[in-house]
C-alpha cells in the first residue's frame, strides 16, 4: 500500500466512523438524510455520466453539459404545459400520459441540441489548440443559459408537480419519511444507468466508443467512423442529462436558468471522483457526492458544504489521482 492509498484510506475511514457515530445516536434522522442524499446523488450521477463519457472520448471538459441538463428541465416544464387535464393535486391518467410524452420529448430534444453543439462548436476545433474548445464550451454554456434567460427571465420557473404525491403516496418506515418521488428518482436513475452500461458493453456502437476513447487513430484505422462515434457519445450523454433535467424538475418543481452551472460543476466533480472516463465510477461518484452534500448540510452546515465537496475533490486527486474506481483515460 502506497502512502497515497494509505492517506486515502485514513480519510475514508474517518468519515465512515464519524457518520456511524451519528447513525447510532440519531438513527432515524441519519436514515432520513441518507434518503435525501441518495435521491440527489442519483440525479448528479445522470449528469456526471455525460461529463465522463465526453471527457473519456475527446478529453474536453464540456462546460455546456450542465446547461443541457437545465434546458431539459425547461423543455419539460413547457411540454407539460401543453397537456390539459393534468392536475398537481391528484394523480390522473392524463398526468401519466404527460409524463410518458415529456420524458422522450425532452431527452431526444436534448440529444439533438448536444449533437448540434458538438457539430458547430467542438468538431471544427478538434485540431486547434487544446484550450480553444474549452472556451467554446464556456461560450456554449453562456449561450444556453442566455436562451433560457431570454425565454423566462431571471425568475424561478415552476415545473408542474405531476408525480403522485401527498397522502397515500408516502410512508414512514421506522421514523423515516419516504415519498413516492424519492423512490421514483432512484429507480429511474438506476434503470437509465443500467441501460447505458449494457449499451456500452454489448452494442457495436458502444464498443466503437470504448475503442475511440482508447486510441482514436487506431480505431479510425480499424474502420470506425470517428465523427459518428463522437456524435453518438454526445447524443447519449445528452439523453441522460435531459432525463436528469426532467427528473430534477419533477422532484424539486423549481428551476432557474443558471441551475446547470452549479449542478454541472458538482456533477463534473463526481465524475472525477469516480475516476474520469469510467462509467460505473461516475454513477458511484454522483451518489457519494450527493450523500456528502446531504450529510454536510445536516451535520456541518450548508455554508461549509461547498468547502467539503471541493476539499474532498482535492484530497482525492492528491492521494488517489485515478479516482475511486480508476480512470479509463489513457495517457497520451
Amino acid at each position: 500500500m502506497s502512502v497515497g492509498d494509505f492517506g486515502f484510506f485514513v480519510i475514508c475511514l474517518t468519515a465512515i466512523v464519524l457518520l456511524a457515530a451519528q447513525a447510532v445516536v440519531h438513527p432515524s434522522e441519519f436514515a432520513q438524510i441518507l434518503v435525501f442524499g441518495l435521491a440527489d446523488g442519483a440525479i448528479y450521477a445522470l449528469v456526471a455520466l455525460g461529463y465522463t463519457m465526453v471527457y473519456g472520448i475527446i478529453e474536453l471538459i464540456n462546460f455546456a453539459h450542465g446547461d443541457v441538463f437545465t434546458l431539459g428541465a425547461y423543455v419539460a416544464a413547457a411540454v407539460m404545459g401543453f397537456f390539459a387535464g393534468t392536475s398537481e393535486d391528484t394523480f390522473s391518467v392524463s398526468n401519466l400520459v404527460a409524463l410518458l410524452v415529456t420524458f422522450p420529448a425532452a431527452m431526444l430534444l436534448m440529444g439533438a441540441v448536444n449533437i448540434t453543439i458538438e457539430r458547430v462548436a467542438y468538431r471544427p476545433l478538434r485540431n486547434a489548440p487544446r484550450l480553444a474548445p474549452l472556451i467554446t464550451a464556456i461560450g456554449m454554456s453562456f449561450l444556453l443559459e442566455g436562451i433560457m434567460f431570454v425565454w423566462s427571465g431571471p425568475f424561478t420557473v415552476h415545473v408542474p408537480d405531476l408525480l403522485p404525491h401527498g397522502p397515500g403516496f408516502n410512508t414512514t418506515i421506522g421514523g423515516v419519511f419516504i415519498e413516492f418521488k424519492d423512490v421514483f428518482v432512484v429507480v429511474a436513475a438506476a434503470i437509465l444507468v443500467s441501460l447505458l452500461a449494457v449499451f456500452i458493453n454489448r452494442s457495436k456502437l458502444g464498443k466503437a466508443m470504448r475503442a475511440t476513447a482508447q486510441d482514436r487513430d487506431a480505431s479510425q484505422l480499424m474502420g470506425i467512423n470517428i465523427n459518428r462515434t463522437i456524435a453518438a457519445t454526445f447524443f447519449i450523454g445528452a439523453l441522460l442529462a435531459g432525463a436528469g433535467g426532467v427528473i430534477w424538475g419533477l422532484y424539486f418543481n423549481a428551476i432557474t436558468y443558471n441551475l446547470g452551472f452549479r449542478t454541472g460543476l458538482v456533477a463534473f466533480t463526481s465524475a472525477v471522483f469516480g475516476g474520469i472516463g469510467n462509467i460505473p465510477g461516475a454513477a458511484l461518484g454522483g451518489m457519494v457526492i450527493g450523500l456528502t452534500a446531504a450529510f454536510s448540510d445536516a451535520y456541518i452546515g450548508s455554508k461549509w458544504t461547498q468547502v467539503v465537496i471541493f476539499g474532498i475533490l482535492i484530497g482525492v486527486l492528491v492521494f488517489r489521482p485515478t479516482g475511486l474506481l480508476g480512470m479509463r483515460v489513457p495517457e497520451k
Binding site: V120, A121, P124, L125, A128, P129, A132, P133, I135, T136, I138, G139, M140, S141, F142, L143, L144, E145, G146, I147, F149, V150
Partner: peptide
Amino acid sequence: QFLLYGLILVLMMLLRPQ
C-alpha cells in the same frame, strides 16, 4: 446579454482558434 456574450465567444474561437 448572456446569449450574446456566449455567441461572441463561440464565434471568435471558431474564426480564430489561435
